[in-house]
Amino acid sequence: MDSFKDILEKSQRRLSDIADKLDDQREELSEDAAELWQQAKPKLGSLKESLTTAALSLQSQGEQARLQAHLAAMDAQDQWSYLSKTMTELTRNAQQKGRTELESAELQAHLAKMDARDFVNQQGEALSKDYQQAREKIEQASHTAMKELERSLEIIGKSWSNF
């Protein structure tokens, strides 16, 4: 926009220079040329005013555009700040939830390990008790069988001695 403004200002200066030179040399111009100059002079003034209006409008629009750009930048900064805080909070919450889930999983694993140990201990005790009972029964059965065998052998031995 500044380049347009510079061009407009340069054009205004040139038009003023041309008008001043033609006014200075009016007496040296022919009658037809002087008459043409008198007709063109108001149009030149009108053109100069149009350029001035355009420069002011461009300047106003430039300031307005800069203001709009500044406001847009401020709005973007506010939105970035909000998003940044939101993302930080979301990250913190996700980390906390992950930590909580991990701690919960660790606790569940520990409890499962303790339950398994208790189960093995209980089953081990029950198995040990069952084994002990089975051993005692087998010993009794073996003892009983040995006594029966001993009696049978005594009976057989007595029967053979009678022969």
Rank of each mutant, 00 (worst) to 15 (best):
Q133L: 12
A34F: 00
S104Q: 14
D20R: 15
K21Q: 09
S152G: 15
Q132E: 14
S104P: 00
I18E: 02
E150P: 00
D20K: 15
Q64G: 12
S57M: 08
T100V: 07
L8E: 00
S11M: 05
I155Y: 11
L71R: 15
V120N: 02
Q25V: 00
P42Q: 00
E136H: 09
Q39W: 00
A55H: 13
S57I: 06
N93K: 15
S46D: 15
A94Y: 03
L111E: 08
R66S: 11
R13T: 09
R13G: 04
Y82L: 14
K147H: 05
L8F: 07
I18K: 02
D130V: 06
Q61S: 14
E49D: 14
F163D: 09
A76N: 09
T144P: 01
L47R: 11
A141W: 02
W37Y: 15
Q39H: 05
L22E: 02
Q122P: 01
Q132A: 09
Q95R: 11
F163W: 04
L51R: 04
F163T: 12
D32S: 12
Q64C: 02
L47M: 10
D118W: 05
E106M: 11
L149Y: 08
A33V: 07
A134Q: 12
A141V: 02
A141P: 00
I156K: 07
D118L: 10
G124D: 00
D20S: 10
K41A: 04
D23Q: 12
F4H: 15
T53E: 15
L107E: 13
E31R: 14
Q25G: 04
K5V: 06
L107F: 03
L67D: 15
K41S: 02
Q79S: 10
A109K: 14
R66D: 12
E27R: 08
K129P: 00
S128F: 01
E139L: 12
Y131W: 09
R13H: 06
L111F: 04
D17P: 00
A69Y: 00
S46I: 03
T86A: 13
L15A: 03
G157N: 12
A116S: 13
F163S: 10
S30F: 01
S81E: 13
I7S: 08
R66Q: 11
E27Y: 09
L111P: 01
A94G: 02
K21N: 10
L90N: 11
K158M: 03
I138S: 07
Q25R: 12
K10E: 05
A105K: 08
R66K: 14
D130Y: 06
